[in-house]
Design a protein around this nucleic acid. Structure first.
Lengths: 157, 157
DNA sequence: CTCATTGCAAACAATTTGCATGAAG
DNA sequence: CTTCATGCAAATTGTTTGCAATGAG
């Protein structure tokens, strides 16, 4: 249901990226579009390194440096969002492909669950007014124990 | 007003930490209490490195390693919370000294504003029920432009 | 006395950067 | 042709770890 609205997302994303690059007089290189393509295809959060591995499996050899440099561009043009949960590395995700959502992170098994709930946006509107700042993006991360780990507390001792 | 309830916080915090250490048969070293003392005194978020600098200024020479090791203990016993905004390093803050709150981070000037609003807790309760997970902690971070940077967009070009 | 803790320096992991080569416009 | 992008390897940043010396219980 939610995803049906975004069926043309891969195509639109490429268009958005291409425009963005042209506007800044940056170049439409194959590497950049291979990376974007892989990201929109995944439709979930991922790590920089798993993206690299994923590409290697498909025999697309793109250097780690280019991955990071391209991710920065994609974040800048709003196609990708960067998340830091309380771990060492960062997580990224395709923005419009997923729609507005938040995250629950299980402290026992590490699973990340995407939460779709609109009421947080109301709070945000209220806060914007009362504090006179404008919100461009936000993160709402919940940490705790998921249903499975609550049932069986020892499964990840 | 809010803070008045916590006037004895430094004292209570030391007690909590001391109990925690005893329970685990860890030692009450001067370094650990110097660090805790400095943290509760600050009453706001800080970086591991600024804590070190702060201590050096006061001629308390504690190694970086000990700082990190002690922060971990303080997080474990619930006195300190660790935050990752989307920057390289982590931010820490004394938990009970500040009370439940969230953060607004200005993307232009980097300022961090603490937000006190209880309505987020209602959402959390609702989500816990509907998803059957239990929330132990959470982060709600808003990114955007603060009032000052909205007024004068070029002040940090 | 014994074991945890400290400080130091070296190790790490994720990310960034400098530079020579290569390709887009 | 000019300029930007790439890949590589080295550098950087925040944090962690091994180990010998020290100090708390």
């Amino acid at each position: 249901l939610r995803l049906s609205r975004n069926i043309n997302y891969p195509l639109r994303a490429a268009g958005i990226f291409s425009n963005y690059l042209q506007q800044r007089e940056l170049k439409n290189t194959p590497e950049r579009f291979i990376i974007l393509n892989e990201i929109v295809r995944m439709r979930k959060h991922f790590e920089a390194d798993s993206l690299l591995v994923q590409l290697r499996i498909k025999n697309k050899k793109i250097s780690r440096a280019t991955i990071y440099r391209t991710l920065e561009l994609l974040i800048d043009c709003g196609l990708v969002k960067k998340n830091k949960f309380n771990t060492l590395h960062s997580y990224y995700e395709p923005v419009a492909a997923l729609g507005q959502h938040d995250h629950f992170i299980c402290l026992a098994c590490g699973k990340i669950i995407e939460i779709y709930d609109k009421s947080i946006m109301n709070i945000q509107k209220k806060l914007q007014k009362s504090h006179r700042f404008s919100v461009l993006q936000y993160t709402y991360h919940l940490y705790g124990h998921c249903a499975a780990c609550k049932r069986n507390p020892n499964r990840y001792e």
